[in-house]
């Protein structure tokens, strides 16, 4: 594991009311590392990565992102969010703005980049996700797969050091899953640090450095994909894999 982790989560604990959702989570993510987090629904995977950019608050523990400490008081949340990009299950594009405006909004209003430069950068990223010709359409006029690729481009325009993916393909038709996964594979090849919550085990095998299995708010098992799929250790992991791999 890398000696200089870009994300370091230590003894993270979170409760929803009385319900203990995350229990003593410790996770180090090295620069350029690709981690796939999987597990049954309700196991806290999404909650965990949403804690990293402070979309969820937590009660105990600490998260350090690129040297910026994020404790339970979330004081430095703005600094962290500027370093962390996020892609959601339901895309969450802004429906009242064109694709191009979706991608230039944050650079213009958060980083104070002039509109012209922001648009040039946005077009560069839209080209990378292979939809530059749709720049002036509204999100509602595009397919789910295209929308999710725009969402990836939108996150990239802020030049994040870490990308979080919260089940990016779960809301897509089977045909469109591939185009989004291809985009993510490209991103991984370029060396982006990625934390991906997904059930796409093919993607995990292909690009992940490490697979983390969660259940009941805890990390049950963490291993390289080869070992994880070929040789699961914990009984819960074996059960999970037997159910999703046929």
């Amino acid at each position: 594991m890398s000696t200089d982790p870009i994300v370091n989560i230590s003894t993270l604990n979170k409760w929803y009311g009385d319900f203990h959702v995350l229990r003593d989570i410790n996770l180090e993510v090295g620069r350029g590392e690709r981690i796939v987090i999987c597990g049954p629904s309700g196991s806290g995977k999404s909650t965990l990565i949403r804690c990293i950019n402070a979309l969820e608050e937590f009660q105990e523990g600490e998260i350090v992102v690129d040297g910026i400490e994020l404790g339970p008081n979330l004081r430095r949340v703005d600094e962290v969010r500027r370093e962390v990009g996020m892609v959601f299950q339901s895309f969450n594009l802004f429906p009242h703005l064109t694709v191009l405006d979706n991608c230039t909004l944050a650079p213009i209003w958060v980083r104070n980049i002039p509109k012209k430069d922001a648009e040039a950068t946005a077009m560069k990223f839209l080209e990378r996700v292979k939809i530059p010709h749709q720049a002036n359409k509204f999100p509602g006029q595009m397919s789910g797969g295209q929308q999710q690729r725009v969402a990836i481009a939108r996150a990239l325009t802020m030049n994040p050091k870490v990308m979080l993916f919260d089940e990016p393909t779960s809301a897509l038709d089977p045909e469109m899953v591939k185009e989004v996964l291809d985009t993510m594979v490209d991103l991984a090849r370029e060396g982006m640090t990625m934390l991906v919550v997904t059930h796409e085990m093919g993607f995990a095998r292909e690009v992940a450095n490490r697979v983390v299995f969660m259940d009941a708010g805890q990390i049950i098992e963490s291993n390289t994909p080869q070992e994880f799929f070929a040789n699961p250790q914990h009984a819960r992991t074996k059960l999970f894999l037997s159910q999703i791999l046929r």
């Binding site: 969010r81 339901s90 802004f94 009242h96 939108r154 996150a155």
Partner: peptide
């Protein structure tokens, strides 16, 4: 307005004021 809209804006680093005035309120008023 779905909660995801505000979350997406926050995740991009927009402050509460900017999220409200650029993302949430324009859609709400429409």
């Amino acid at each position: 307005i779905p909660r995801g809209q505000g979350e997406a804006a926050s995740a991009l680093g927009l402050s509460w004021w900017k999220t409200t005035s650029l993302i949430v309120m324009p859609q709400a008023l429409r």
